[in-house]
Design a protein around this nucleic acid. Sequence first.
DNA 1: CCCATTTATTGACTTTTAGTCATTTTTTGA
DNA 2: TCAAAAAATGACTAAAAGTCAATAAATGGG
Lengths: 234, 234
Amino acid sequence: MGTSERKEREKERKKALILKSAEALIFEKGLDNLNMDEVAERAEVSKGSLYSYFSSKTEIVLGICNKATGMLSKEISEVLTKDIPGIEMVYSIGATFLNFVRAHPEFFRSMRFFDNLKDTDQLSESDYIELCQSNINTSFTSMVRAIQVGMQDGSIQSSYDPKELAVLLWSTSHGLVNMAYLHQNTPHFQLLEKNNIDMNSLFEAYMKLIGCGIATEGDIVHDDLKLIFETEKK
Amino acid sequence: MGTSERKEREKERKKALILKSAEALIFEKGLDNLNMDEVAERAEVSKGSLYSYFSSKTEIVLGICNKATGMLSKEISEVLTKDIPGIEMVYSIGATFLNFVRAHPEFFRSMRFFDNLKDTDQLSESDYIELCQSNINTSFTSMVRAIQVGMQDGSIQSSYDPKELAVLLWSTSHGLVNMAYLHQNTPHFQLLEKNNIDMNSLFEAYMKLIGCGIATEGDIVHDDLKLIFETEKK
DNA sequence: CCCATTTATTGACTTTTAGTCATTTTTTGA
DNA sequence: TCAAAAAATGACTAAAAGTCAATAAATGGG
């Protein structure tokens, strides 16, 4: 009869509509001020109906996080298609991440919300947790691949364990990017201002520091870094 | 007369008592589940009274953050008194930070809460914000000092700007330490488990990576790292 | 096309918790 | 001793997440 399939599609359409409304509200007022009554109003459904599509506010934010991590992992994956040495892929992935957070701070916030979920939140009942984890894993795998490419093409030292190195670059770049987020979005974060440090040059210094540690001789100094960096900014 | 001074002392004593109660509750139930009624009950004051000492829940958490950042900055400052090369001071500061977060995850949480304050929170009216900022600045200054010591004693390359390098180490170690926090405290964070990576060896790899970037020839490989590391763990 | 049954929608209601304030109690000092 | 000031109280308000009995809409067999 095809009725149930149509219903299923209709349901997905409405979930998407609700997520779109929530996303709009988050961009307008910030993730902290997201309000379920307002989401319902914006999506033109009743509160009860809203809760039949999303079991909790957390679930909605995870829906946003799914979109965020999906976008980011797609952008990061695209780096791997470039015809450049592995070490530059690593640089480019870092720049992609930084630019993503600058362009979409609230998406980044939803990602941190995901990171900080406690088991007390309805962890296992969520449809989106697995999707988010999968997206993040895709990004992480891209990082591992870039490192492996670099080891293959000789631009990255083969002495490291690719996965360990990937985790290291992953966590340190998170730290740097989080600082960029704080610098841009929280007014009382003054560390960069106070010390007259420009985020872009800090990022270049990070690349250089990493380069010294992992690149092979010829690739240590990455002269085009600034160029890549501006390109990434689209 | 001395009455007003006694009152002042009495007031401080009571604030400290309330903070102590809040701290106990945070350790028992986590920062997310901190409840003002329970704080009042634990501190044996009424809710109204509680609010005459602390203007908001945020203010209490900032009070905790003040203690946390104070403890950390003290521990970090002590590293500078050691008779070791600057590069090892840098390593030791990192290890101190990591061990602090492992030992006091809820304190670290309060520090992140501070980081993420929005201007919509009563930012300027807080007594503790300045104290927290000052504590953090003390820690940061210790890092700058360690780098300067290293440049003086020849264990760290002088080609870097000490402050920029300090910010870089600050933010990247935050990233690493945050990952350690997530690994230890959020069950669905599986990146390390999935890739069979041990946090301690990851930290050593971080030290090595930094070492390659900033140390002078003789100090690049830091053989005693593991030793220092265990010592730090107290 | 009708109507019984299932499915979806509604919004008033409950619950929780931060924060307030009129009232009461305690302290102060002349 | 007692009036005024300061501190303490807890019942109350407000805001927002989440629930559910009642209602409306869709479905599909006869």
